[in-house]
Design a binder for these strands. Structure first.
Lengths: 195, 195
DNA sequence: CCTACCGATCGGTAGG
DNA sequence: CCTACCGATCGGTAGG
């Protein structure tokens, strides 16, 4: 099954890219992980960058899909933002290698692809920002700088990709809830409505 | 002046390490920036790792010194935390290359030095955590998981090292105040006491 | 600080 | 998927 092997390689590469960075990972490091010879990798992959691109695209798709599944326009801004934050964290924790590569290693892509990623990231951030703006407009949130608050919030969530370990002390749900709670409380105009 | 040249090299290296990562930066990239030949770099530097080590240590010292200067045990936990957060941001924004290398590239150091950095990072985080714990004990802050809240807060501040540009739309003061305000509000047991 | 060099490793290919 | 190879670049050194 060609597809299976390819995904195995992508998965191994994403883990290494997260740990050592893209330039710090050689194609032979990746090959070793899936137990083939360095040159044999090119039976499955056009180039090292091609591999990074697949990983980054996959992560981008999963982030988008997670928000799609979490979005519910009928809810209050606070609830909507909490759901988006939790969805974001679930991708980070369940798709650690891909997510971390998407968040940090995309800058090693070629200029065209980099621009592509940048545009998708911007659109993704806008989805969070809109909810913040809605919350400010409705009086649920304080009158903060929505752009800066979006960056603030996503930075704290993205940081999880740097330190999360599946076997760690806190479960992904605990982390997601604790972070969402802190963020909501940071934006809220009132006392937090217990999550 | 040997020292001046050395610092010039460290400064150039820190900028490149931030932009391309440590493994993505060659010693010849660094040499080119200070307009000398690749081999000539070794008149000033024992090794590439030695350069990273200097940068990381310098940043660690500056972070520590910033907290030393900002700490005031007489104040309320909220005020103390706000001052620590602002101090942290000031190092990130004023020492961007060193700070980013300290935050991200330290993992490419040798095992011994890596452990060294890890211990300093832990101690640094403890200083934030203690203030959070004090605030919880005094009733100023909500009863959150102090460890998780510390990671949350520092992640959002450290994220600044990834996107801040000295010529950007927001000044470092605006950023520091906005982030500190959001964080304080996130932890606060009451409505935020306007910053 | 330069020139000229070292062995090792890099991403990638040819030809099975 | 392997063997055997390619030119380029890597970090680093010798000897001025």
């Amino acid at each position: 099954m060609v597809e299976t092997r390819r995904k195995q390689i992508e998965s191994a590469a994403s883990v290494l890219f997260r740990e050592r960075g893209y330039p710090g990972t050689s194609v032979r490091d990746i090959a070793r992980t899936v137990e083939i010879q360095g040159g044999s990798l090119y039976a499955h992959v056009a180039s090292k960058e091609d591999l990074l691109w697949s990983i980054v695209e996959r992560a981008a798709n999963r982030f988008d899909a997670a928000l799609d599944g979490a979005e519910n326009p009928g809810n209050s801004a606070a609830t909507r933002l909490r759901d988006l934050a939790r969805a974001h964290v679930s991708v980070v924790t369940e798709d650690l290698g891909n997510a971390a590569s998407f968040l940090h290693e995309w800058r090693f892509l070629s200029a065209t692809r980099r621009d592509d990623v940048l545009e998708r990231r911007r659109e993704y951030e806008r989805r969070f920002r809109r909810v913040i703006e809605d919350g400010i407009a409705s009086g649920e949130f304080r009158d903060v700088d929505a752009k800066l608050a979006t960056t603030w919030l996503l930075s704290s969530l993205n940081g999880i990709a740097g330190w999360y370990r599946p076997d760690g002390r806190r479960s992904q749900t605990e982390i997601a809830n604790a972070f969402a709670d802190l963020i909501l409380s940071g934006l809220s105009a009132n006392r937090r409505t217990d999550s």
